[in-house]
């Protein structure tokens, strides 16, 4: 453990550099640069509002806030895990030539996606205020799902990055899986409309930890009753996935080089 911390301290500058690189390169050579972290979710929210707002007759004015809050969390989770999954293969050239702690790659990938995600929350604040959704004291609770979703993304990202070294199919499978997660996370519809009082259906929704995070996040934003049970479940899920991810990664990392 002490060796691990020493090693981490030695390479923390590398972690910083990799995070910086991720953020810098994401928007390099685009005219609006980092502004895209704000514009892109805004535009997709407008599209979703126009389509589903009319389709589902959810015409109330806070509907864009509802979409945006769900979409931001989901897109962080999906882009974070997908990028982490590919990070070992993407850095194969470096891993084969120089020794660096390998967990730096998935970890830095998730961190830079998290940084971009946090920046994009600005647009959520702006849209909320613009549409008259004002924060109550409950907005403080929002911090918890944000932390949990971060831990969960690292954990799942570690698992995926390890498995993807040995089975490349995972990239395609995970593409499908993230789509499934998106549709089951109630991003642009209200769960009540689907569940309609059916406890079994509600249970299925509650199995999705990302849905739990999104729900509690929205509870905080709209000042509703907080679903602490869902939050606890998401927290446990994130911790377990984190432990499994780290353990799996450490166990298999010496074999990476033989496969990449």
């Amino acid at each position: 453990m002490r060796v691990f911390i020493q090693n981490f301290m030695k390479y923390r500058f590398l972690l910083m550099e990799l995070v910086k690189k991720g953020i810098k390169l994401k928007y390099r050579r685009s005219y609006l640069g980092i502004l895209w972290t704000l514009i892109e979710p805004l535009l997709t929210t407008i599209v979703l509002t126009v389509i589903f707002g009319n389709l589902l007759n959810r015409g109330n004015s806070s509907y864009p806030v509802y979409i945006l809050s769900g979409r931001l969390l989901y897109s962080f989770f999906s882009s974070g895990t997908t990028a982490a999954m590919k990070s070992i293969r993407a850095n194969a050239g470096m891993i084969k030539k120089v020794y660096v702690p390998k967990y730096m790659y998935p970890l830095s990938t998730v961190i830079y996606n998290y940084a971009i995600f946090l920046i994009s929350l600005i647009i959520l604040i702006l849209v909320s205020l613009f549409l008259g959704v004002f924060p109550t004291y409950k907005v403080l609770v929002c911090v918890l799902p944000l932390i949990i979703v971060g831990i969960m993304t690292i954990g799942v990202g570690m698992i995926l990055s390890t498995l993807n070294v040995f089975f490349r199919d995972l990239e395609y499978l995970w593409g499908v899986a993230t789509m499934l997660i998106m549709y089951s996370s109630a991003i642009f519809y209200h769960v009540e409309d689907v569940v309609k009082g059916d406890a079994a259906k509600e249970f299925i929704f509650n199995l999705n930890p990302l849905y739990c995070c999104i729900t509690v996040f929205r509870n905080g934003i709209f000042g509703d009753t907080i679903h602490w049970g869902l939050l606890l479940y998401a927290f446990l899920f994130s911790v377990v996935s984190f432990i499994i991810g780290v353990a799996l990664f450490i166990k298999k990392q010496d074999k990476f080089i033989l496969y990449i």
Binding site: F13, E17, K21, K24, K96
Partner: peptide
């Protein structure tokens, strides 16, 4: 081997330096 193609030379000095543990 540790260079990033899209990075400039100056940025790569820091990146590659970090890879080497500086």
């Amino acid at each position: 081997a540790g260079f990033d193609k899209q990075y400039t030379g100056a940025e790569n000095i820091y990146l590659y330096g970090a890879v080497l543990g500086y």
